[in-house]
């Protein structure tokens, strides 16, 4: 039997399937999130990749903002617990996790077994979130995935001082009008996000190792900015975007085993 974790975020859906030994059987990502066909699609994809049917999945744990809206799950867990679990599996030794989600920034302090010890989240403001990056990429008329490469070509990062998304947008527009290079603006955007996130990191206190979770961690330009702001190396796993789904799958595996020991 298999255990599945599905992470339904605000901008993407992710799923992971584990076999009974806890080995990753399949993983999938779909770039649309809660309220769309994304969750169903990613779950269909991941089963297809694993070559299994829904009946083969003994336990499904959901996480992410859309965790209550997915039919047929066995239980759901908060994304904080799932990222903590997932990252500590991918990158053992991690004590501080930074996750920049679509609408939330989370900073978590975790113990040696991946248990959550303390956490802070941003207030209700899009500053510094994935949504902020999306908006800025749109203004620059580039894909959000292109921001990273651009920022590495910067020679003089632009100063984006506003934290408010609307104001920052107009600041970026005026930089464009002033013919400031796209590369420098991209680097400036990263710096602005990094400052905001670093402020939350300070609240929890940095304890190495520090790792980044979530899809935004794939933006290595931003990770570099963040490293400069928190003055510390940040580890990123290639499957960082799947950390939440993996954590959920690990919880599912645990529940599946408990359940088996009861019934078997």
């Amino acid at each position: 039997m298999f255990a599945a974790g599905i992470d339904i975020g605000s901008t993407a859906s992710k799923a992971v399937i584990l076999d009974g030994d806890g080995q990753v059987k399949a993983k999938a990502t779909v770039p649309i999130g809660t309220g769309t066909a994304g969750p169903e699609r990613v779950f269909g994809q991941v089963m297809e990749l694993a070559g299994i049917a829904r009946d083969d999945v003994a336990w499904i744990t959901a996480t992410g903002y859309g965790r209550f809206s997915f039919e047929g799950i066995n239980d759901q867990k908060s994304e904080l617990s799932c990222h903590a679990k997932g990252i500590s599996h991918l990158l053992p030794g991690t004590r501080t996790i930074i996750d920049i989600g679509g609408q939330d920034i989370k900073v978590m302090r975790i113990g040696d077994k991946g248990q959550l010890l303390n956490f802070v989240m941003n207030d209700k403001c899009a500053a510094g979130t994935g949504r902020f990056l999306d908006t800025m990429a749109k203004v620059l008329d580039v894909e959000v995935s292109a921001l990273s490469g651009l920022s590495f070509q910067a020679d003089e990062p632009a100063e984006i001082s506003s934290t408010c998304t609307v104001f920052a947008e107009s600041e970026v527009i005026s930089k464009l009008a002033a013919k400031i290079r796209l590369e420098n603006i991209a680097a400036g955007i990263h710096k602005s996000v990094a400052r905001r996130v670093a402020s939350l990191v300070q609240r929890v206190g940095i304890q190495p190792d520090v790792a980044m979770s979530g899809g935004v961690a794939l933006n290595s330009g931003l990770v570099r900015s963040l490293e400069e702001e928190v003055r510390c190396h940040i580890r990123v796993h290639e499957d960082c975007q799947l950390a939440g789904a993996l954590g959920a799958a690990l919880f599912a595996l645990h529940s599946m085993r408990n359940c088996e020991s009861y019934t078997g």
């Binding site: 903002y65 867990k77 908060s78 994304e79 904080l80 617990s81 903590a84 939330d104 248990q115 959550l116 010890l117 956490f119 989240m121 209700k124």
Partner: peptide, 18 residues
């Protein structure tokens, strides 16, 4: 001014789970 309290749930749940 808003009925969106999803973040509160995430935090309470994270506290309860650990």
């Amino acid at each position: 001014s808003t009925s969106d309290s999803g973040q509160a749930l995430t935090k309470i749940q994270a506290y309860a789970e650990n």
